[in-house]
C-alpha cells in the first residue's frame, strides 16, 4: 500500500494525547491500527501508552479500549476475546472484530510475561503488540530485560564500578515463536512498510500473533526528538534489532542491511550510552559487537540465509 492511500483510511488514534514530543509509540499504534480491516477492541497494559492516551476525560482512542492493570493486558484481552467468541456462537453478535493488546517491554518482557505466555498458549485470536522502548520509561527510565547491555538507566546507572546495564536483553520474539503460535514477528517503527505488512499478517492468522516493535523513547534513550525515526532505523541497520518473522514455524528474514553499521555507531547516537565513549570501554564495546554478530549469524541460520 502507498502512504497517500493509507492516509485515506480513518485513523483510530487521535492527537491531543500527552506522550512526549517525538515519542515513538504513537507511530507504532498508527501503523498497526491502519492495517486492521475490521473494527478493533484494544487492551493496554499500564505504561506510557495507557497513561498518556487516556487522561480522564480525554481519550485518544476512537475504538473500544480497556486498561485494567500492568501485568495482564494479555489476560484481560483473553476475556474480551472469549466473550466475543461466546456471544458470536450464540448469535448475539454478528460482526467480525479484531483484538489487540498493547504492552511496553515492562508489561510484556517482565511483569506480564506469564499472562502473555498463557494467552498465546491457549490460542486466543489476539494480536499482542509489544511497543518495545527498551526500558521502564513510564516510571522514569529503569532497566528491563529488554534494555541493551551497557545502557545507563536509573536502576543500572553508569558509575565508577558498573558501566550501565550488565546483561544482554533476552530474545522475547524467539520465546514467543517457541510457543508454536501461527505468527510472531520482530519489526521497527522506522520500517513502516515491513511493520504494516506484518500487522496485516498478524490480523489475518486464525490464532494468536505476537509483534515485537522497536519504538524509540527519546527521553530514555537520550536522543533529540526529531531523531526518533533515525535512531530506530539505526538499530535495524546495525543488526541490534533485526527484522524477521516466524510464520507457522518458518523463520524468515524480512530485511537485510546492505552493509551492517558498527553497533558503536548506533550507540553513539544515544545519550544512554554516552559514558561508554567517555573512558576506555573497548573491551565491553567489542564484546557487545561480538554478541550482536553471533546473534545475527544464528538468525541467518534459522532463516536459512
Amino acid at each position: 500500500m502507498a502512504l497517500p492511500d493509507l492516509a485515506k483510511k480513518p485513523q483510530r488514534f487521535t492527537g491531543g494525547h500527552r506522550a512526549c514530543a517525538g515519542c515513538g509509540f504513537p507511530v507504532t499504534i498508527k501503523i498497526i491500527l491502519q492495517a486492521a480491516e475490521n473494527p478493533v477492541v484494544v487492551g493496554c497494559a499500564t505504561g506510557c501508552m495507557e497513561v498518556t492516551s487516556t487522561i480522564y476525560p480525554y481519550t485518544a482512542w476512537r475504538c473500544s479500549f480497556i486498561h485494567t492493570a500492568f501485568e495482564n493486558a494479555a489476560a484481560t484481552m483473553s476475556g474480551v476475546e472469549a466473550a466475543y467468541r461466546s456471544l458470536k456462537r450464540q448469535g448475539k453478535i454478528d460482526k467480525d472484530i479484531d483484538f489487540i493488546a498493547f504492552g511496553g517491554d515492562g508489561g510484556t518482557y517482565d511483569i506480564g510475561l506469564q499472562a502473555l505466555s498463557g494467552a498465546m498458549e491457549r490460542g486466543h485470536k489476539l494480536v499482542y503488540v509489544c511497543y518495545n522502548n527498551q526500558g521502564y520509561m513510564n516510571t522514569g527510565i529503569q532497566r528491563s530485560s529488554a534494555t541493551p547491555r551497557g545502557a545507563n538507566t536509573t536502576t543500572t546507572p553508569a558509575g565508577t564500578h558498573l558501566p550501565g546495564k550488565p546483561q544482554y536483553p533476552k530474545d522475547l520474539t524467539a520465546i514467543m515463536a517457541a510457543h508454536g503460535i501461527p505468527y510472531a514477528a520482530q519489526a521497527s517503527m522506522s520500517h513502516w512498510n515491513d511493520l504494516y505488512r506484518k500487522a496485516q499478517k498478524a490480523f489475518a492468522v486464525d490464532g494468536p500473533a505476537f509483534l515485537n516493535v522497536l519504538s524509540t523513547c527519546r527521553l530514555g534513550w537520550a536522543t533529540a526528538p526529531e531523531d526518533t525515526v533515525d535512531v530506530a532505523e539505526g538499530a535495524v541497520q546495525c543488526n541490534v534489532w533485526p527484522l524477521f518473522e516466524v510464520e507457522n514455524g518458518k523463520w524468515k528474514l524480512t530485511f537485510k542491511p546492505k552493509k551492517p553499521l558498527p553497533v558503536a555507531d548506533w550507540m553513539k547516537q544515544q545519550g544512554r550510552f554516552k559514558h561508554l565513549f567517555q573512558s576506555d570501554n573497548t573491551e565491553l564495546l567489542e564484546s557487545i559487537q561480538r554478541q550482536v554478530d553471533e546473534d545475527w549469524q544464528r538468525l541467518l541460520e534459522l532463516c536459512g540465509e
Binding site: H17, P26, K30
Partner: peptide, 21 residues
C-alpha cells in the same frame, strides 16, 4: 512531493491529508 512520510511519522496526528494530498 506528497510522499506522506510527515503524515506517517508524526506522533501527534498533525499532518492533514485529504484525498491522498
Amino acid at each position: 512531493i506528497n510522499c506522506h512520510r510527515c503524515w506517517l511519522y508524526c506522533p501527534d496526528m498533525s499532518w492533514i491529508s485529504e484525498n491522498g494530498q
